[in-house]
Write a protein that binds this DNA or RNA. Structure first.
Lengths: 112, 112
DNA sequence: ATATTATGACTCATGCATAGATCATATAAA
DNA sequence: TTTATATGATCTATGCATGAGTCATAATAT
């Protein structure tokens, strides 16, 4: 008996994924690239590209970002070198944050 | 005999995915949220959250975006309603583009 | 008009991502 | 210190995403 796993997503996530897919599709057509062409370059199947452009949440991050890069859709609108710089900045910030998050055992008795 | 499928990614894709993961991790800690806590809210396992924060390209788009939303990392830095508007704009642009991309059979003889 | 190609919508098989454990270690609170 | 919890790392089982087809239709070029 197959286990039915229905996942739910927030409106924001779905909107973001849908938008990304449509941006990719628009960019691909503007560049006059065939679905098969882009799929081949990304090393994925045409079927998967269809799902990415349609905004399917189950698609892999890597495949999606790769396609986006190929058709010229910039995530974070920045160049790779800029991303690298950002990564370093975040790493510095991370180093300052506590390595492990600890919850208070009880509610703070600050109610009077 | 197992088929070995080694996928490659562009530098840009990998950087973007890495940055996204680190942004999520930093945001989670700033909000003092436990890995288990975020995973539960997103409806995913703690192990998957680890891979997302580590920047694993094989993670699903939906899971990643959902986590990002929960910890407050905005993709496209815009609200959901703004995204909806953007989606409509892209749809209008898409309607104007040719429905099917057709490659020229021969190179255009415009070389003199 | 015809011919050609792109696209969309399916199917099926299987390799792998994922959930769900467990354990050891690190970290933070008391 | 001691105690409790968060994190990282690893393993196994299995549901499903993916690749690879096929087919019908749409869209473009000739």
């Amino acid at each position: 008996m197959p286990k039915v796993t229905t996942r739910t997503y927030s409106r924001y996530s779905l909107e973001a994924i849908t938008l990304l897919g449509k941006l990719i599709r628009a960019a691909r057509k503007e560049r006059k690239m065939t679905a098969q062409e882009v799929a081949d370059r990304a090393g994925i199947s045409r079927g998967l590209l269809q799902r990415i452009e349609k905004g399917d949440p189950k698609c892999a991050l890597g495949a999606t970002f790769e396609v986006a890069t190929i058709v010229g859709v910039k995530l974070f609108d920045a160049e790779a070198t800029t991303l690298t710089r950002h990564i370093r900045q975040i790493e510095e910030k991370l180093a300052l944050l506590p390595k492990s998050v600890r919850k208070k055992a009880k509610v703070a008795d600050d109610d009077f």
